[in-house]
Amino acid sequence: SEYETMLTEIMSMGYERERVVAALRASYNNPHRAVEYLLTGIPG
Rank of each mutant, 00 (worst) to 15 (best):
residue 1 S to T: 14
residue 1 S to P: 12
residue 1 S to I: 13
residue 1 S to K: 12
residue 1 S to H: 11
residue 1 S to R: 11
residue 1 S to M: 13
residue 1 S to G: 10
residue 2 E to R: 11
residue 2 E to D: 14
residue 2 E to M: 11
residue 2 E to G: 09
residue 2 E to A: 13
residue 2 E to Q: 11
residue 2 E to Y: 12
residue 2 E to F: 11
residue 2 E to S: 12
residue 2 E to T: 11
residue 3 Y to N: 04
residue 3 Y to I: 06
residue 3 Y to T: 04
residue 3 Y to V: 05
residue 3 Y to G: 02
residue 3 Y to Q: 04
residue 3 Y to S: 03
residue 3 Y to M: 05
residue 3 Y to A: 03
residue 4 E to G: 06
residue 4 E to C: 14
residue 4 E to P: 03
residue 4 E to K: 08
residue 4 E to R: 07
residue 4 E to L: 12
residue 4 E to I: 11
residue 4 E to W: 11
residue 4 E to Q: 10
residue 4 E to M: 11
residue 4 E to H: 09
residue 4 E to S: 07
residue 4 E to Y: 11
residue 5 T to E: 12
residue 5 T to Q: 14
residue 5 T to P: 08
residue 5 T to D: 11
residue 5 T to K: 15
residue 5 T to L: 14
residue 5 T to W: 11
residue 5 T to N: 12
residue 5 T to M: 14
residue 5 T to C: 08
residue 5 T to G: 08
residue 6 M to I: 10
residue 6 M to Y: 08
residue 6 M to E: 02
residue 6 M to T: 05
residue 6 M to K: 03
residue 6 M to L: 10
residue 6 M to F: 08
residue 6 M to D: 03
residue 6 M to R: 04
residue 6 M to A: 06
residue 7 L to P: 00
residue 7 L to T: 03
residue 7 L to D: 00
residue 7 L to M: 06
residue 7 L to W: 03
residue 7 L to E: 01
residue 7 L to Q: 01
residue 8 T to A: 15
residue 8 T to E: 13
residue 8 T to G: 09
residue 8 T to M: 15
residue 8 T to N: 14
residue 8 T to F: 14
residue 8 T to W: 14
residue 9 E to F: 15
residue 9 E to I: 14
residue 9 E to D: 10
residue 9 E to S: 12
residue 9 E to L: 15
residue 9 E to W: 15
residue 9 E to K: 13
residue 9 E to G: 08
residue 9 E to Q: 14
residue 9 E to P: 01
residue 9 E to T: 14
residue 9 E to R: 13
residue 10 I to F: 07
residue 10 I to Q: 00
residue 10 I to T: 01
residue 10 I to N: 00
residue 10 I to V: 03
residue 10 I to H: 01
residue 10 I to L: 14
residue 10 I to P: 00
residue 11 M to W: 04
residue 11 M to Y: 03
residue 11 M to A: 04
residue 11 M to S: 04
residue 11 M to T: 05
residue 11 M to H: 02
residue 11 M to G: 02
residue 11 M to N: 01
residue 11 M to Q: 04
residue 11 M to D: 00
residue 11 M to K: 01
residue 12 S to G: 11
residue 12 S to W: 06
residue 12 S to E: 09
residue 12 S to F: 06
residue 12 S to T: 07
residue 12 S to D: 08
residue 12 S to I: 07
residue 12 S to A: 15
residue 12 S to C: 07
residue 12 S to K: 13
residue 12 S to N: 13
residue 12 S to P: 01
residue 12 S to V: 06
residue 12 S to Y: 06
residue 13 M to E: 02
residue 13 M to A: 04
residue 13 M to Q: 06
residue 13 M to D: 02
residue 13 M to K: 06
residue 13 M to C: 07
residue 14 G to N: 02
residue 14 G to H: 02
residue 14 G to C: 05
residue 14 G to Q: 02
residue 14 G to P: 01
residue 14 G to V: 06
residue 14 G to A: 02
residue 14 G to R: 02
residue 14 G to T: 01
residue 14 G to W: 06
residue 14 G to F: 05
residue 14 G to Y: 05
residue 15 Y to C: 01
residue 15 Y to R: 01
residue 15 Y to I: 03
residue 15 Y to M: 02
residue 15 Y to K: 01
residue 15 Y to G: 00
residue 15 Y to L: 02
residue 15 Y to V: 02
residue 15 Y to W: 12
residue 15 Y to F: 15
residue 16 E to G: 07
residue 16 E to W: 06
residue 16 E to C: 12
residue 16 E to L: 07
residue 16 E to K: 06
residue 16 E to I: 07
residue 16 E to P: 14
residue 16 E to D: 13
residue 16 E to H: 06
residue 17 R to M: 08
residue 17 R to P: 03
residue 17 R to T: 03
residue 17 R to S: 04
residue 17 R to Q: 06
residue 17 R to W: 07
residue 17 R to F: 09
residue 18 E to P: 06
residue 18 E to D: 12
residue 18 E to S: 10
residue 18 E to Q: 09
residue 18 E to T: 08
residue 18 E to N: 09
residue 18 E to G: 08
residue 19 R to P: 05
residue 19 R to Q: 15
residue 19 R to L: 14
residue 19 R to M: 14
residue 19 R to T: 10
residue 19 R to C: 12
residue 19 R to H: 11
residue 19 R to S: 11
residue 20 V to I: 05
residue 20 V to K: 00
residue 20 V to E: 00
residue 20 V to D: 00
residue 20 V to H: 01
residue 20 V to L: 02
residue 20 V to N: 00
residue 20 V to R: 00
residue 21 V to S: 05
residue 21 V to K: 08
residue 21 V to G: 02
residue 21 V to W: 04
residue 21 V to Q: 07
residue 21 V to R: 06
residue 21 V to I: 14
residue 21 V to T: 06
residue 21 V to N: 03
residue 21 V to F: 04
residue 21 V to C: 06
residue 21 V to A: 08
residue 22 A to R: 08
residue 22 A to F: 05
residue 22 A to S: 07
residue 22 A to M: 08
residue 22 A to H: 07
residue 22 A to V: 07
residue 22 A to P: 01
residue 22 A to N: 07
residue 23 A to Y: 02
residue 23 A to N: 00
residue 23 A to Q: 01
residue 23 A to H: 01
residue 23 A to G: 01
residue 23 A to W: 05
residue 23 A to D: 00
residue 23 A to R: 01
residue 23 A to T: 02
residue 23 A to M: 03
residue 23 A to V: 03
residue 23 A to K: 01
residue 23 A to S: 03
residue 24 L to I: 04
residue 24 L to G: 00
residue 24 L to S: 00
residue 24 L to M: 08
residue 24 L to N: 00
residue 24 L to D: 00
residue 24 L to V: 02
residue 25 R to E: 10
residue 25 R to M: 10
residue 25 R to W: 07
residue 25 R to N: 09
residue 25 R to D: 07
residue 25 R to T: 08
residue 25 R to L: 12
residue 25 R to V: 08
residue 25 R to G: 06
residue 26 A to K: 07
residue 26 A to D: 05
residue 26 A to Y: 09
residue 26 A to R: 07
residue 26 A to E: 07
residue 27 S to M: 07
residue 27 S to E: 03
residue 27 S to Q: 03
residue 27 S to T: 10
residue 27 S to Y: 06
residue 27 S to K: 02
residue 27 S to L: 04
residue 27 S to W: 05
residue 27 S to R: 02
residue 27 S to H: 06
residue 27 S to I: 05
residue 28 Y to W: 09
residue 28 Y to S: 14
residue 28 Y to C: 15
residue 28 Y to N: 15
residue 28 Y to A: 15
residue 28 Y to G: 15
residue 28 Y to F: 14
residue 28 Y to V: 07
residue 29 N to S: 05
residue 29 N to V: 04
residue 29 N to E: 05
residue 29 N to W: 14
residue 29 N to Y: 11
residue 30 N to D: 15
residue 30 N to Q: 07
residue 30 N to A: 04
residue 30 N to G: 02
residue 30 N to F: 03
residue 30 N to T: 05
residue 30 N to V: 06
residue 30 N to I: 07
residue 30 N to M: 05
residue 30 N to R: 04
residue 30 N to S: 06
residue 30 N to E: 08
residue 31 P to T: 05
residue 31 P to I: 13
residue 31 P to A: 10
residue 31 P to Q: 09
residue 31 P to H: 08
residue 31 P to L: 14
residue 31 P to W: 13
residue 31 P to V: 12
residue 32 H to K: 14
residue 32 H to C: 13
residue 32 H to Q: 15
residue 32 H to T: 14
residue 32 H to S: 14
residue 32 H to A: 15
residue 32 H to N: 10
residue 32 H to L: 15
residue 32 H to W: 12
residue 32 H to M: 13
residue 33 R to H: 08
residue 33 R to L: 15
residue 33 R to Q: 13
residue 33 R to W: 11
residue 33 R to I: 15
residue 33 R to G: 06
residue 33 R to D: 08
residue 33 R to N: 07
residue 33 R to S: 07
residue 34 A to P: 01
residue 34 A to G: 02
residue 34 A to L: 04
residue 34 A to Y: 02
residue 34 A to M: 03
residue 34 A to H: 01
residue 34 A to I: 04
residue 34 A to V: 03
residue 34 A to R: 01
residue 34 A to W: 03
residue 34 A to D: 01
residue 34 A to Q: 01
residue 34 A to K: 00
residue 34 A to F: 04
residue 35 V to D: 01
residue 35 V to S: 03
residue 35 V to E: 03
residue 35 V to M: 13
residue 35 V to F: 07
residue 35 V to Y: 07
residue 35 V to K: 09
residue 35 V to A: 05
residue 36 E to R: 08
residue 36 E to L: 13
residue 36 E to A: 09
residue 36 E to Y: 14
residue 36 E to G: 05
residue 36 E to K: 08
residue 36 E to D: 07
residue 36 E to P: 01
residue 36 E to S: 06
residue 36 E to V: 10
residue 37 Y to V: 05
residue 37 Y to K: 03
residue 37 Y to R: 04
residue 37 Y to F: 12
residue 37 Y to T: 03
residue 37 Y to I: 11
residue 37 Y to P: 00
residue 37 Y to A: 05
residue 37 Y to Q: 04
residue 37 Y to S: 04
residue 37 Y to N: 03
residue 37 Y to W: 10
residue 38 L to E: 00
residue 38 L to M: 04
residue 38 L to N: 00
residue 38 L to W: 03
residue 38 L to A: 01
residue 38 L to Q: 00
residue 38 L to I: 04
residue 38 L to D: 00
residue 39 L to W: 05
residue 39 L to S: 08
residue 39 L to M: 14
residue 40 T to P: 03
residue 40 T to N: 15
residue 40 T to W: 14
residue 40 T to I: 10
residue 40 T to D: 09
residue 40 T to L: 13
residue 40 T to Q: 13
residue 40 T to M: 14
residue 40 T to F: 14
residue 40 T to R: 12
residue 40 T to Y: 15
residue 41 G to A: 10
residue 41 G to L: 09
residue 41 G to M: 11
residue 41 G to K: 09
residue 41 G to Y: 11
residue 41 G to Q: 11
residue 41 G to S: 10
residue 41 G to T: 10
residue 41 G to C: 08
residue 41 G to P: 06
residue 41 G to W: 12
residue 41 G to F: 12
residue 41 G to V: 10
residue 42 I to Y: 10
residue 42 I to H: 09
residue 42 I to G: 10
residue 42 I to E: 09
residue 42 I to V: 09
residue 42 I to F: 13
residue 42 I to A: 09
residue 42 I to C: 10
residue 43 P to D: 10
residue 43 P to L: 12
residue 43 P to Y: 09
residue 43 P to K: 08
residue 43 P to F: 11
residue 43 P to S: 09
residue 43 P to G: 09
residue 43 P to W: 11
residue 43 P to C: 12
residue 43 P to Q: 09
residue 44 G to W: 12
residue 44 G to K: 11
residue 44 G to H: 12
residue 44 G to L: 13
residue 44 G to D: 13
residue 44 G to S: 12
residue 44 G to I: 13
residue 44 G to Y: 10
residue 44 G to N: 13
residue 44 G to P: 14
